[in-house]
């Protein structure tokens, strides 16, 4: 092949360069527009922190997403979500103490963890009939609500753990990736799905504010 065979070079180079540039500009414009908007909204920069997640008090225990064979047992007083980091050297695994209710500020974690595990409560706390039922029903309702807006054509496979918190009206206050699938694209699809689910069904009046933080495993089959 020669440049002669390639035909008139200059117009082609101009056309190709212009087309590529146009596409690049379109992507950049979108990225910048959204980036600026969202950066403005974001109170804090992205931080990698582990979060303490408590097991729910009701009779229905939290099911581990990927229960390791030798899962450490934790005290029932403080059930924590152990979120092993995918790259332990970059994100040390530690179970942080839960922040006092209402005091605010531990950032929601964005650990790039391959396997997120919520520890089993042991022994299960004594059943408290009505709130437990209420909570179980509400969790199922939330899960169904989130699934209703699922992406319909994702070819990716894996499981992502999303942590989020809502207010008493069901509006999403915060959300993030608590356990990565290992594929950043898939993680973002799962996160987007949860964020788009807001507003969620308002929690029943009988549930305490402390119970409005959730984690949800999203499994793409």
């Amino acid at each position: 092949m020669s440049l002669v065979g390639f035909g008139p070079l200059a117009p082609r180079v101009v056309a190709l360069a212009a087309t590529t540039l146009l596409h690049a500009l379109a992507v950049a414009a979108l990225v910048v527009a959204y980036g600026a908007r969202e950066t403005g909204k974001t109170a804090q920069p992205l931080r990698l922190t582990l979060m303490t997640l408590s097991a729910p008090p009701p009779s229905r225990p939290v099911r581990p997403l990927h229960k390791p064979a030798d899962a450490p047992r934790r005290s029932p007083e403080r059930q924590t979500a152990a979120i092993p980091a995918a790259r332990a050297s970059a994100v040390p695994v530690s179970a942080l103490p839960a922040s006092p209710e209402g005091s605010a500020l531990a950032p929601l974690p964005v650990p790039h963890a391959a396997n997120a595990v919520v520890a089993q409560p042991e022994p299960p706390p004594p059943p408290i009939a009505e709130p437990a039922d209420m909570m179980a029903a509400y969790r199922t309702l939330l899960s169904r609500h989130i699934r209703a807006g699922r992406p319909r054509a994702s070819a990716l496979r894996g499981t992502v753990l999303i942590a989020f918190r809502i207010d008493r009206g069901g509006t999403l206050l915060a959300s993030d990736i608590a356990g990565s699938s290992g594929d950043p694209n898939l993680d973002r699809i799962a996160l987007r799905m949860v964020r788009q689910a807001s507003p969620m069904p308002a929690p029943p009046a009988g549930l305490a504010a402390a119970q409005l933080a959730f984690v949800v495993p999203v499994a793409f089959h």
């Binding site: 969202e38 909204k41 974001t42 109170a43 804090q44 992205l46 931080r47 979060m51 303490t52 997640l53 408590s54 097991a55 729910p56 939290v62 099911r63 997403l65 979500a81 942080l96 839960a98 922040s99 209710e101 209402g102 005091s103 605010a104 500020l105 531990a106 950032p107 929601l108 964005v110 919520v118 909570m135 969790r139 199922t140 939330l142 899960s143 989130i146 699934r147 699922r150 499981t159 942590a163 918190r165 999403l172 206050l173 915060a174 959300s175 993030d176 987007r192 799905m193 964020r195 402390a210 119970q211 933080a213 959730f214 984690v215 949800v216 495993p217 999203v218 499994a219």
Partner: peptide, 18 residues
């Protein structure tokens, strides 16, 4: 980051898998 990332780290319930 659609929403501010800072949230209360508080007890979280795990929902049934989606």
């Amino acid at each position: 980051a659609l929403l501010p990332l800072a949230v209360h780290a508080q007890e979280a319930s795990q929902l049934p898998q989606v």
